[in-house]
């Protein structure tokens, strides 16, 4: 479409879908009362509880939202490749790694981490082989964590475990 670069409509749709998801999550976390409670629990569970936030309720809602978004991601995946009962296991590790690299509890970190891991993964698999590419990514993440032990975006809080 643009020059020699061509994007199929299904991929454009996924791109749009992920932007919509991202914006709605951002709105929920940073613009609503429930989102504020969620962030409070994440940063300092005990203190949030002391201030009257029902952590149980927050846990339930957050888990439900997280599962729902996983479902949306699953829908997007059907447009990309083959579907089977074990499709999720292929993505567990990648999803976790994105969080580790981005920093737990940081939306921007997750986006940056996902882009970073995705791009490096593709490059490594293109240059070497699929299995060596996985090893290189893992080593890169370990090396990255030596430099930034708690991920790209650090959420500061006064709580000490």
């Amino acid at each position: 479409m643009v020059g020699s670069l061509s994007l199929p409509y299904s991929r454009l749709f996924i791109l749009a879908l992920s932007i919509v998801c991202l914006v709605s999550i951002y709105y929920y976390f940073y613009r609503t009362a429930n989102g504020r409670r969620t962030r409070a629990v994440m940063q300092n569970r005990q203190m949030a509880e002391c201030l009257g936030v029902s952590t149980r309720k927050v846990d339930m809602i957050t888990f439900a939202i997280g599962s729902g978004f996983a479902g949306v991601a699953g829908c997007a995946l059907t447009l990309l490749g083959a579907i089977g009962p074990t499709i999720g296991t292929n993505y567990i590790i990648d999803a976790f790694m994105v969080v580790v690299v981005g920093g737990v509890g940081a939306l921007f970190g997750a986006v940056a981490g996902a882009f970073g891991i995705g791009i490096f993964n593709t490059v490594f698999e293109y240059v070497t082989s699929a299995s060596i590419g996985k090893v290189l990514i893992f080593l890169l993440i370990i090396a990255f964590l030596q430099w930034r032990p708690s991920g790209l975006v650090v959420s500061r809080s006064r709580s000490l475990d």
Binding site: I92, I93, F96, M97, V99, V100, A130, S131, I132, K134, V135, I137, F138, I141, I142, L145
Partner: peptide, 14 residues
């Protein structure tokens, strides 16, 4: 925990 799980994935793929 995540890193330890990734280690499994990486080595099994290898």
């Amino acid at each position: 925990t995540i890193l330890s799980q990734a280690l499994v994935l990486v080595l099994v793929t290898l």
